[in-house]
Design a protein around this nucleic acid. Sequence first.
DNA 1: TATGTTGATGATAGCGCAATCATTGCACTT
DNA 2: AAGTGCAATGATTGCGCTATCATCAACATA
Lengths: 345, 345
Amino acid sequence: MKTAKKRSSDKKITLVDVADASGVSAITVSRVINQPEKVSESLRIQVQKAIDSLGYIPNQHASSLASSKSKVIGVAIPSLSNIVFTEVLRGIYEVMGAAGYKVLLVDTHYSPLEEEKMIRTLLSQSPEGLIITGGDQTKACQNFLHKARIPIVQIMELLADPIDMNVGFAHGRAGFDVVKHLLGQGYERIGFIGARMDPRVQQRMQGYKLALEQVGKFDKSYIVTTPEPSSIGVGGELFKSLMASTNGVVDAVFCVNDDLALGALFEAQRMNINVPQDMAICGFNDIEAAEYVNPSLTSVSVGRYEMGVKASEMIIRVLNDKSVESKKVDMGYEIKKRASTSRLK
Amino acid sequence: MKTAKKRSSDKKITLVDVADASGVSAITVSRVINQPEKVSESLRIQVQKAIDSLGYIPNQHASSLASSKSKVIGVAIPSLSNIVFTEVLRGIYEVMGAAGYKVLLVDTHYSPLEEEKMIRTLLSQSPEGLIITGGDQTKACQNFLHKARIPIVQIMELLADPIDMNVGFAHGRAGFDVVKHLLGQGYERIGFIGARMDPRVQQRMQGYKLALEQVGKFDKSYIVTTPEPSSIGVGGELFKSLMASTNGVVDAVFCVNDDLALGALFEAQRMNINVPQDMAICGFNDIEAAEYVNPSLTSVSVGRYEMGVKASEMIIRVLNDKSVESKKVDMGYEIKKRASTSRLK
DNA sequence: TATGTTGATGATAGCGCAATCATTGCACTT
DNA sequence: AAGTGCAATGATTGCGCTATCATCAACATA
């Protein structure tokens, strides 16, 4: 049983329909869309008119299959709700969007196994490039990433042995420097508050530990962590439990991110602990609130947006057969010294 | 010039390769992947072994082209950096991921024209469903959305005439209720601080205006807005300029979101204005900081995550030929009354 | 005139997969 | 014994597009 073709507005419009409507061959329509400079102006206008009036939208799957170019970049991040990653994402979308790439984004929930599954999904879309987080991939995952033969950037941390390219900064060193700063301000018993405890948080903690060990002031009972995700609420809880378990001797806290730090700060205020006189609080990431809260919060500023931009640009350069200066880029960081850790002066 | 096929590890593995390797036909391999229950166990295992050892990853484009099923859901949001949308996204990813759908996300930068372009991009991926923000689409865009013949949910606000389905809440009414609450607490001269001024913010402002007009207390000089994006910093600035332009007579401020409200609150503290005694501050969205900041911040709580979940579930129901109870869902909201607006007590 | 050279257009084939229909073998019924 | 039904597997075809090569006109060069 055939239905009339005319006016059947529910039929999907294809290249051939446009070609028929404008009296040219299909390939010419394809050219009008993909390489308009190869078609004479008169024809181009004529075809474009047909495209518009039919409301033709190309089928990207057919195009990708035929050309093996997907114009898709796969991105895997561990968490959507973490502001750190959404800012990196902004950078990625900015650059990739401008370069005509779509971004296929997956959330790995901080699990290498989930990540493997998700990266499989990404690869099944034949992406032209990949941006993934960290270096904690499963063996199997590394395997098919190596096989993929597309540019890959691992972001967030500096890796000893990246799969392909790498953009990040040294979390361990940052943790180390934070402690140095606190010691320099005259704080003596420096606690540590951490949540989620992903690899990058662990590195910060190692830096913290190292710095304190060097001056003989490391005390593991000053460390309070939880595998739960970070939040302001959790920060408050951890701060309370640090105070309780140490009988309040701690006079500074390095919080592994700003949510925790804000939670600790607000909780300290409620406990009538004077920040920074009796307690220093330092965060990490330098979110906007750090600058404006009272007292303003010392934090480690890292170029999240810039990291997304950099990673994207590297991929695009490779895709355009341009060389990248270096396969490994250290974005650095900066400790923003603010009121919450300045007892001097 | 032909290269040997053997061991050429750079050749992409296809269904046929797997079929050859496991001694079955291509279609059987396809079944092992897509409808394993239709293949006998022995064959299934045999084929799976070949899949694993070859590291076969299906080509989604070919699959989509042949089956006209993409397993892709398109999502368009106005901003990646706004926590409001990332929480909605979380809900979407949660549900869509579990149901085996990929999410293709685009950022429209609050521009209907950009949105039109982006939705075009989405449609070229033949998504099976679409989640888009608000009702401000261009005529052309509405046109091809109607033509698309896939389930579409417009989220965030309640629309008079949705394209297909709609999940949101009444921003105007929420603004109205906020003012009622402030009046009930004895505040008299209520200011308004807004940024970005997208359609939903405008609706909140209309509610604010209506409530004040009803009691004869509307004064348009109490309104300070900017087209800039919201941020804590901008909130502080707007608060300062409201105070300056009204000579400090305002005794309450309705901030159109929590970033602005926090900025206003921190700025008030710096100006030594006592919140809530001399100044009430109310935000919108109820982000986590609202509950923990000192004084805690009154805000309008809306189920962002739930909205993402709901929209996703509706699409999935339609895709599974189940009916949805209603094409239009009001998620409601709740004013969280906290210290920043409670002078009484 | 013969010989390129260039630019614009078209015909054909095939990308990798799944829909569709066909085939086979086997258990069960009458 | 013949027929019926069903589960498991395969052969063929085409999804919508682009790569590739072919064609043809227009013009330049010697």
